[in-house]
């Protein structure tokens, strides 16, 4: 690890002042991703600004019937929060599908959103990577790319976003509250993360001097009909090859509202509103779900080792939507897929 300076932010204004004062400085909260990347020499911030003691740990109900989740609420506290368990079980389930109990105790809500890819070439400083070193090339494109993206890739980068929580937040239409030097702004979840394009070094649309302060959930939580299905190489404590967040609102067997988001397949949680629109007003059955799967995967493109993900995703989508429709969500402890 390379030498760095450390300072604790006393309040939000102090955090913003400190980040603006030193180019390349980074905020640290849970540290579970950043410290790992610093040990690997992938991240080399000259200064860490510790925001972990800022008062951003509340989960509050909003005037609009939703929830405002402070950026420093630990992942485990969020997954087990009574209001999340009751009204947003899709989110609770997705959080519990990720990492380990220890890491969930440490990791923050805002930090989860800002996780960097687990592409092994991004981590390996001996190889080219446009995300780590812009312009150096992409070792994954013609390398070992079993875990890589099948949607929204570019010549420059085929990395995936690693988060499970974010897949649920995308499906739930969450919003991200951000503070910066010129005040606050709110991003839709779809606008937070970027596709790689020609600038894969930028994961999100946040500026370097901005900070996530909260995540807001709308009222609609799909608590009756949802499922988070994660397919990976081991039964626990592994990143998704493919994951599916499925949420339905049903009326007498007809789909009133549908949400479908995929993890492990793209540079960001993958949603396709036309695939969801095509389910509205249709019967909740396999034929409808198959059309939605075809729609969301229409432009999927495999590389040398990951083409299997296209069929895997199709089957996982059918299964997750069927689980959601039946009101029998995937358990995150009993791993049998029913």
């Amino acid at each position: 690890m390379i030498n760095f300076q450390y300072a604790r932010a006393t309040d939000l204004a102090d955090a913003l002042r400190q980040i603006a004062a030193e180019p390349g400085a980074k905020f640290i909260a849970g540290g579970t991703n950043l410290i790992d990347l610093m040990k690997e020499d992938v991240e080399r911030p000259p200064r860490l600004i510790d925001i972990s003691r800022l008062p951003l740990r509340e989960v509050e109900q909003t005037r609009h019937g939703g929830l405002l989740i402070g950026a420093l609420v630990p992942n485990s506290d969020l997954a087990y929060h009574p209001l999340i368990e009751r009204h947003y079980p899709l989110l609770a389930s997705a959080i519990l599908a990720g990492a380990s109990a220890q890491l969930r105790n440490m990791a923050s809500t805002g930090g989860n959103l800002l996780q960097r890819t687990r592409c092994y070439y991004f981590y390996d400083t001996a190889t080219p990577c446009n995300k780590r070193t812009p312009g150096s090339g992409c070792a994954a494109r013609y390398g070992v790319n079993r875990i890589h993206a099948i949607l929204g890739t570019s010549d420059a980068c085929i990395a995936t976003h690693p988060s499970d929580m974010c897949v649920a937040l995308a499906a739930l239409d969450a919003q991200v509250h951000v503070a910066g030097p010129s005040g606050g702004r709110t991003l839709t979840f779809a606008d937070l993360h970027r596709l790689p394009g020609t600038t894969p070094e930028r994961d999100t649309n946040l500026a370097a001097d901005e900070i996530i302060t909260a995540v807001e959930l709308p009222e609609r939580g799909f608590a009756a009909n949802y499922s988070y299905l994660k397919i990976r190489d081991r039964l626990s404590y592994a990143f998704a090859l493919v994951s599916v967040a499925a949420a339905l609102e049903l009326e007498h067997g007809t789909i009133k509202e549908a949400r479908l988001a995929l993890g492990g397949v793209a540079h960001k949680p993958w949603r396709n509103v036309s695939a969801e629109a095509a389910m509205r007003g249709e019967p909740a059955n396999r034929a409808t779900f198959a059309r939605a799967a075809d729609a969301i995967l229409r432009d999927a493109k495999g590389f040398a080792h990951n083409a299997f993900k296209i069929e895997l995703a199709r089957r996982a989508i059918l299964r997750a939507l069927s689980q959601a429709a039946a009101g029998t969500p995937q358990s995150q402890s009993v791993k049998k897929i029913r």
Binding site: Y6, I28, G31, T32, I35, D36, L48, D50, S52, S76, A101, Q102, L103, N105, M106
Partner: peptide, 13 residues
């Protein structure tokens, strides 16, 4: 009282 990975946090934090 909470279990964490002590390798993934700095002592100063």
């Amino acid at each position: 009282g909470r279990r964490i990975n002590s390798c993934m946090t700095f002592a100063v934090m």
